[in-house]
Design a binder for these strands. Structure first.
Length: 268
DNA sequence: ACCACCTCCTGATCGC
DNA sequence: TGCGATCAGGAGGTGG
């Protein structure tokens, strides 16, 4: 699943479209567009000014409009020629300069887009409720939010209103790096452990960004560019493999319905 | 406020 | 081998 490093990698690749003008839009599977979105055809003839990210959201800046795009599980973008055949899982097509075709491809159709007026970005619930990314999060505020909860720390860190950008892969890795058991309830977490979670998140996300993200089945970047961070994973998908610290087998459990990989000896 | 549970989807994998 | 059942999972919604 695309998380913060993968989304940043996608944004970087797509920035080659900046300065180009939208000449055609095709919505093949309309449910990808949120019900509360403006009509995406308002982007016709508009010029793409910038692409930024906020957590797992891509933000396409078209001057007076912003198109938000969340890839959820398997959303991906491809840049093709407008004459290229439309593939089975390509649901939204935006053509630029009558030559370049941006294809939104999503096997499971979980991804969502929403077109908003730029001045409404501060009134858009999905965006404003996002917490800060680990790079700039306030550790005391994060601790105050964590200790109010009895949910497992694993589940708390997947909540984008608590900390922004981590998904299942990186939460598994962050908790291993922090030596914290994923099932430990939030109200048992200390300020020191919170600080460690932030430090580990920054370290792991920065390394993953450097590697272009993690390539697993559900994620490939635009243009088939693939990341390399899967080679650095220490627990995710490593069930029964030896822990890199203590050599005991990595365990797989389910925490609130999510696959969780950890070392029960190293993570307390 | 907090949290459990359901929904959306389809390809891969499992079980018989 | 084949076919139906089950699973995976981010975020939004519902309801206790």
């Amino acid at each position: 699943m695309p998380e913060l490093p993968e989304v940043r990698t996608v944004a970087k690749v797509l920035r080659k479209l900046i300065g180009k003008q939208v000449t055609d839009i095709q919505v093949i599977y309309p449910k990808i567009i949120n019900d509360n979105s403006l009509d995406i055809n308002l982007l016709l003839n508009k010029t793409l000014k910038d692409i930024t990210t906020n957590g797992k959201y891509l933000l396409f800046d078209y001057d007076q409009y912003i198109l938000t795009s969340h890839l959820r599980m398997e959303g991906k973008y491809f840049i093709k020629d407008i004459k290229d055949k439309i593939e089975k899982h390509e649901h939204i097509i935006i053509n630029f300069n009558n030559e370049i075709s941006l294809r939104y491809d999503d096997t499971r159709k979980f991804g969502r887009m929403q077109l908003i007026k730029k001045e409404d970005i501060d009134k858009t619930p999905s965006i404003i409720k996002l917490a800060k990314e680990p790079f700039e999060i306030d550790r005391k505020e994060l601790y105050d939010k964590i200790i109010k909860k009895r949910l497992p720390i694993k589940s708390i860190l997947l909540d984008q209103t608590i900390i922004n950008g981590l998904g299942n892969i990186y939460v598994n890795e962050v908790l291993f790096d922090s030596k914290i058991c994923p099932t430990k309830p939030g109200n048992k977490i200390t300020q020191e452990e919170t600080n460690q979670i932030v430090d580990s998140s920054v370290k792991i996300l920065n390394n993953a960004i450097k590697e272009g993200g993690t390539t697993i089945r559900s994620y490939t970047s635009s243009l088939g560019i693939t990341g390399n961070y899967q080679n650095h994973l220490k627990v995710h998908l490593k069930e029964k493999e030896p822990c890199t610290i203590c050599n005991k087998p990595i365990e797989k459990i389910t925490v609130n319905g999510r696959s969780t990989y950890f070392c029960s000896f190293c993570q307390k």
